[in-house]
Design a protein around this nucleic acid. Structure first.
Lengths: 149, 149
DNA sequence: ATCCAGATTTAGACCCTGTACAAATTTAGA
DNA sequence: TCTAAATTTGTACAGGGTCTAAATCTGGAT
């Protein structure tokens, strides 16, 4: 079993990453991370909680939220705002942005070929930009091909 | 009184814009739009509702939400996600993006000198990109100058 | 000028996501 | 092994937004 540099971090990687941020390595955090990685894509906290519950005793809702927050602080998980009251989480992989279709509500990944924060950072002297989230809205290619209802 | 091309749209402009989208021109929609324009900046739905109430009989909370949604559909108002469960609205003026300070929670405007959607649109062939929202996160210039607590 | 169909407003209850709290438990270093 | 501090857990709570159905209003047709 060779090491694939593109694969998700192993549990050991996750543990090291948490420790390096001064966060403790706990069961819920590893469970939530592994579940989110296995599910892939954009998932709500409750989707994660449901998936965790499907694998065994499950975790309280609050614990899933706590774990997601800790993982996000450690930079292992990214939170995406897909509208008010709709937070989605995903394992932090290669940088990309999001496109939200107004017609079918699909959430598509958009490659981040351009370093957006570099461009915009110039406009905000003195600020430390730690992350940039881009949400594009419009009509996705599939819906654009069919006439509006 | 000359026409200032940089001024907010008049009520007539707003009415025309609503009609062009197949939306009806109603009292609540005009009231909400005018109030948001008068307040300026980024406002929550409840802030708008409170301001409306201060001017007379007020509007039910639901009506404010409905109106904001209709105005957003018409492109007259922009909704900014400033984290989960925190939607802010602003009159859709010149394109700009937002920076959210992790330390003091300030929400700053960032000039959009670069046409972000043009850059990213290239990555999504066939899609109709109607808006691009960029939320930068980090530490604002003021907080960056003071040591962390 | 009046009418009508359909969109919109309104009022209320409701849901959902996330947070606050305090006690029990667990981690990690001594 | 032992201890202090971080974390988990269960419960309750809060804010923001949505759903529903009846009343009202808009805008085109008559």
């Amino acid at each position: 079993m060779t090491v694939d540099p593109l694969a998700h971090p192993t549990s050991d990687d996750v543990a090291a990453r948490l420790r390096s941020r001064g966060l403790r390595v706990t069961g819920p955090r590893l469970t939530v991370y592994r579940t989110l990685a296995r599910l892939g894509g954009h998932r709500s906290a409750d989707q994660v909680a449901a998936a965790v519950a499907g694998d065994g005793p499950g975790l309280p809702r609050t614990s899933v939220y706590n774990a997601l927050k800790a993982l996000a602080d450690a930079g292992l998980v990214a939170a995406v705002d897909a509208g008010p009251g709709t937070a989605l989480y995903e394992v932090h992989g290669h940088s990309h942005h999001h496109f939200l279709c107004r017609r079918c509500e699909a959430l598509l990944d958009v490659p981040a070929a351009t370093p957006v924060q570099d461009l915009l950072g110039l406009q905000l002297p003195g600020a430390v930009i730690e992350s940039a989230q881009v949400v594009l809205r419009g009509v996705c290619p599939q819906c654009a091909g069919t006439p509006a209802s």
